[in-house]
Design a protein around this nucleic acid. Structure first.
Lengths: 132, 132
DNA sequence: TTTTTACTTTAAAATCGTTCTAAACTACTT
DNA sequence: AAGTAGTTTAGAACGATTTTAAAGTAAAAA
């Protein structure tokens, strides 16, 4: 399925701008990035786009499940092209994130989900720091 | 150990402002809060403090391990008085966090920590959503 | 003590990521 | 081809946090 079809399937109009971003993000390679990182990639691909459009697009893509947003206390939002359930190592010094595949973690025992709620995904974060 | 001693032990001068905050936060009750929440508590305790001081203090307290900062992609930083390793339920709609005690989760299998790094804490986040 | 020194607090300004505004534009439908 | 609903844009606005630099305070030295 090409990117135009992916956008349509997600209920998004395949505009020129969304196609440029889809071509960068939906290439099957897993990566973590910020809005600013993406703008740089757009610029170096010879295109340009308003930062407002980039934010709009990232929000739409995330809400449609084309990308994920990482839970992180950094001051900039971090997105992830890996939409499968998976986990992360986090170097708190540098903010670097490293993917952990879902099958590398085994949760043996999980608490009972609070009354009236459904489980909507489990994320394991392993904080790491450089050995001295 | 009283709060003055706790501050000194953490290497922090027990100033008037830090004592006011310590008296609110270090009462042994686990809670999640933002800088603004804390300012409201300070105000309703009959004190007042510059927001810059509150941020300074929270950063110091966090760096000393007196409180923790929660990994969260909300736009406001969320702090936690529970400094033991523990986990959270997160309602992504509302941002509400609910503590999960460490012994309620059992990690059966963990990935190998990357070369040159040390494990610095594991956090499990269970995203939940309201049942319709 | 008093003096000195380093650290802390403060209000206000600045910064930075993100969102809003409203006008121009464009994809899709009729 | 015309209509309409959704999209993009630059720039303004916003809100959380940090910086500034001057005044204040705790602890150390004399």
């Amino acid at each position: 399925m090409n990117n135009k079809e992916k956008l349509r399937k997600a209920g998004l109009r395949p505009t020129k701008q969304r196609m440029i971003i889809a071509d960068i993000l939906l290439d099957g390679i897993n990566r973590h990035f910020t809005a600013e990182n993406l703008q740089n990639e757009i610029n170096s691909s010879g295109n340009s786009m308003s930062i407002a459009t980039i934010y709009n697009c990232l929000k739409k893509f995330r809400n449609c499940g084309l990308i994920k947003q990482v839970e992180s206390s950094k001051d900039t939002a971090i997105f992830d092209t890996n939409i499968n359930q998976h986990h992360h190592f986090l170097d708190e010094e540098t903010g670097e994130l490293i993917d952990i595949e879902n099958d590398e973690v085994n949760l043996h025992k999980l608490p009972k989900i609070p009354q009236g709620y459904l489980n909507n995904g489990v994320e394991v974060l392993i904080k790491i720091k450089k050995q001295i």
